[in-house]
Every structure is written in structure tokens, then in C-alpha cells.
Design a protein around this nucleic acid. Structure first.
Length: 228
DNA sequence: AATGCCTACAACCGCTCCGTC
DNA sequence: CGACGGAGCGGTTGTAGGCAT
């Protein structure tokens, strides 16, 4: 027995939203607030999936959205955040007020990726393209003997890449209790805050206050800080 | 004017996370 | 402690509009 679908597909509209649908959704959320997306469409009189309503509100209808072109400062921030966080668009969006994860993701794929490639920078590794190629080559520099069975079960590890989403002092690697914590929890349990890791925070109590990535303090507006 | 290609972005889909029971 | 269900995330797709031919 599988999970029940999030909505009755045969009774829901798909594709672009009409002005009337937008107005209904906005009016309902203004009156009742966000939340309970699954039941919202029915309550609001919309023939839409709850997920679709949530996406439309978050990415397009929310009143605090900035919209319009990205500034050069925002470009730089996105690149910096992406170099540290990877494709964690929601985390990046949380630090760019008025921007959504979808918007940043699209902007990255259509503009910034190309911009970095044009500068000869690999948009995935944030290293010069030639260096990335060299790193790839050096990863298997010589013909390798046939892998053992246990090696086949594990993906190859690149020695240059730490794929764990964790920016933290090295001592935490030896902390067994800490290693049992899921990555998302680790982000909230200490280490250097995101501002410090970028060199944007001049005075910060990130370690003592466990304010990594600004998750405890809420949204940080890095645009108010000097760019280096 | 017609056609084809390219770009940008809104929206969808499938999966994971996380709270609740 | 595991199952379930809602919410959220990230990858991908669809399509409208712009541009070149």
C-alpha cells in the first residue's frame, strides 16, 4: 500500500496560473495566513494541488519579494554562498532578502554559471577550469588494478572534495557523539558562523552562541556589510 | 512574414526531512 | 521505534518571448 497522493490529479488544474487564481490564493492567505497547504486549495476554492499553491505563493505572490534584476552585490553573494553551500538554494535564498530559492536557482543556471565559465571558473568546484581538469586527471593518474568487491560497493572519493555540508573546526571529527548527529543538526551545533567563514563579520560570537549560518539569529542581511 | 533556435523562468515531479501518533 | 503524512527542497521540464535567418 503506497502513500496517498498529495492531491486528486484528475480534479486539479496544471500549468500557468490565471489572474483569478492568484487573487483567490492571495485573498485566502491574507485572511487565514500560510500553512496547511494540503487543505488550502479546497478551502480557497482553487482547483490546484497544495504543493502548487505553496510554490506559487512563495515564488511569486508573497508581498516581500523583491523581483527585478539581481544586483552585482547579489551576484557576488550568490557565488560566495554557492562556493560554501553548493546547491543548497534554500539556504542561499534565506540570506538574500526578497529572493526565493527557485529564483536564485534559475538565475544561477542561466546567468552565473555562464558568467563563471566565461571567466574560466568551474561553477561546481569554483576553481579554475584547468585546475579542475587537472584534479580530475590526477584522481586516477595511473591504470588501477581491478577494484575489490567492497570498493565496488562504495562510490569513489575524491581526496580534494569534502562532500559533507559542514564547515567546522577539525576537532569535531573526533567527537563520536557529534558524528551521530544528522548534518542539518550539525549546522546548528556550533562551529564558525557563515558570516565569519566568508570574512564578512568583524566581531562575532559565533562559537560561543552556536550561531552557525545565522540559523539561531534568524536572517542575516549581508548586504549591509562591507564586501571584501 | 514565416520559421527555427535560444534564453529565461514559472511550474511540476519525485524525493527527503521532520513532526506526530 | 516504526509508520504515516505534511512540508520543503532540488532537479527537471514546459513554454512564452526574443532574436536571427
Amino acid at each position: 500500500m503506497g502513500r496517498s497522493p498529495c492531491c486528486e490529479k484528475e480534479h486539479t488544474n496544471k500549468g500557468a496560473w490565471t489572474k483569478e487564481e492568484d487573487e483567490r490564493l492571495v485573498a485566502y492567505i491574507r485572511a487565514h495566513g500560510e500553512g496547511c497547504w494540503r487543505s488550502l486549495p479546497k478551502a480557497a476554492g482553487l482547483l490546484r494541488c497544495g504543493k502548487s499553491c505553496r510554490l506559487r505563493w512563495i515564488n511569486y505572490l508573497r508581498p516581500d519579494l523583491k523581483r527585478g534584476n539581481f544586483t552585482a552585490d547579489e551576484d557576488d553573494l550568490i557565488i560566495k554562498f554557492h562556493s560554501l553551500l553548493g546547491n543548497k538554494w534554500s539556504l542561499i535564498a534565506a540570506r538574500l532578502p526578497g529572493r526565493t530559492d527557485n529564483e536564485i536557482k534559475n538565475y544561477w543556471n542561466t546567468h552565473i554559471r555562464r558568467k563563471l565559465l566565461g571567466r574560466g571558473i568551474d561553477p561546481v568546484t569554483h576553481r579554475p577550469v584547468n585546475a579542475s581538469a587537472a584534479a580530475t586527471i590526477s584522481f586516477h593518474p595511473q591504470p588501477q588494478p581491478p577494484p575489490q568487491k567492497e570498493q565496488l560497493d562504495k562510490p569513489p572519493r575524491c581526496p580534494d572534495l569534502n562532500l559533507d555540508l559542514c564547515i567546522s573546526p577539525p576537532w569535531q571529527d573526533d567527537d563520536d557523539e557529534y558524528n551521530d548527529v544528522k548534518p542539518a543538526k550539525k549546522l546548528q551545533r556550533g562551529g564558525v558562523c557563515f558570516g565569519c567563514s566568508l570574512g564578512l563579520q568583524e566581531e562575532c560570537k559565533c562559537i560561543s552562541s552556536s550561531n552557525f549560518l545565522g540559523l539561531r539569529a534568524g536572517m542575516l542581511d549581508f548586504r549591509s556589510l562591507p564586501m571584501k
